[in-house]
Simulated assay, not measured.
Amino acid sequence: MTISRTTRTLGWGRRIAAFVAALLLATVWGSVVQTQFNLQALAALGVDIPLRVRALTTLQDLAGFGPAYAGIVLAAWLPAFLVAALLVRVWPKARVPLYALAAGVGLIAAVRAVDAVAPMPVLIDATRGIGGLLAMATGSLLAGAAFTWWTRTRRSRY
């Protein structure tokens, strides 16, 4: 059975759309997490931060920090998803955990790599501690799992 060029193109289009949607999910999650960690650090110092200010700051960070963070996530995911794709050939039934772990571990590696070259101690203050780093990696992990869900193949009933 041959696959037409149109079918292959639609398949890749679906994969790319799923990748972009998952990237957006991880980016929004990470941006919101870093904002809330930063605001909580200020609140711990006694700064009163009303809900309206939290919401506005979150939206401003999505617009300002979001694109830079999307670049970090993308840089993390490209090699991580390549490794996951190769491992799925060996363990096809482990597709979801392989992509999810690749996304989560890849993000941690990318954040630590960026921190190693950043002029300040850490680029993203929320990742200074393990709690913030894991909270951001959780969003990446969930987005990696979502990517596998959105790109799953539908098996024939025959």
Score class of each variant (00 low, 15 high):
49 I>Q: 13
33 V>A: 04
114 V>C: 09
147 F>I: 00
54 R>T: 07
142 L>I: 03
26 A>S: 14
53 V>K: 10
102 A>W: 01
66 G>P: 00
44 A>V: 09
88 V>A: 15
136 M>K: 05
27 T>E: 15
107 L>C: 08
58 T>Y: 10
47 V>W: 06
134 L>Q: 02
26 A>R: 13
81 F>Q: 07
60 Q>S: 07
145 A>R: 00
67 P>A: 10
74 L>R: 04
61 D>M: 01
42 L>Y: 10
47 V>E: 13
19 F>A: 14
62 L>V: 14
101 L>Q: 03
96 V>N: 01
26 A>D: 14
115 D>M: 02
62 L>M: 12
9 T>A: 14
98 L>R: 09
47 V>G: 05
85 A>N: 11
80 A>T: 03
39 L>G: 06
147 F>M: 02
7 T>M: 07
113 A>K: 02
145 A>G: 11
115 D>Q: 04
24 L>E: 10
41 A>S: 12
126 A>W: 01
13 G>L: 09
22 A>L: 03
86 L>S: 05
10 L>Y: 11
139 G>D: 00
67 P>T: 04
117 V>R: 06
143 A>I: 02
32 V>N: 13
23 L>Q: 10
121 P>K: 06
69 Y>I: 02
70 A>W: 00
97 P>E: 06
77 W>N: 13
6 T>I: 13
20 V>L: 10
5 R>C: 08
137 A>I: 03
108 I>P: 08
75 A>D: 05
122 V>Y: 09
65 F>W: 07
97 P>L: 04
144 G>M: 01
130 I>G: 02
16 I>T: 15
6 T>Y: 12
38 N>V: 10
93 K>M: 08
31 S>G: 15
125 D>K: 07
55 A>H: 02
22 A>G: 15
130 I>D: 06
118 A>R: 01
90 V>W: 09
66 G>E: 00
105 V>M: 12
131 G>F: 03
83 V>H: 10
96 V>F: 06
41 A>Q: 15
134 L>A: 11
96 V>W: 09
36 Q>G: 02
127 T>F: 00
103 A>E: 01
40 Q>C: 11
148 T>N: 00
80 A>D: 02
81 F>T: 02
128 R>N: 02
23 L>M: 11
61 D>Q: 05
8 R>C: 08
97 P>D: 06
73 V>S: 00
35 T>L: 10
147 F>E: 01
132 G>Y: 05
105 V>D: 11
80 A>R: 03
17 A>D: 05
47 V>L: 15
127 T>Q: 02
4 S>M: 10
18 A>F: 07
30 G>E: 12
76 A>D: 00
74 L>V: 08
14 R>W: 06
36 Q>I: 13
55 A>W: 09
8 R>F: 11
104 G>L: 01
85 A>G: 15
62 L>G: 09
81 F>P: 12
96 V>H: 04
32 V>L: 15
126 A>Q: 02
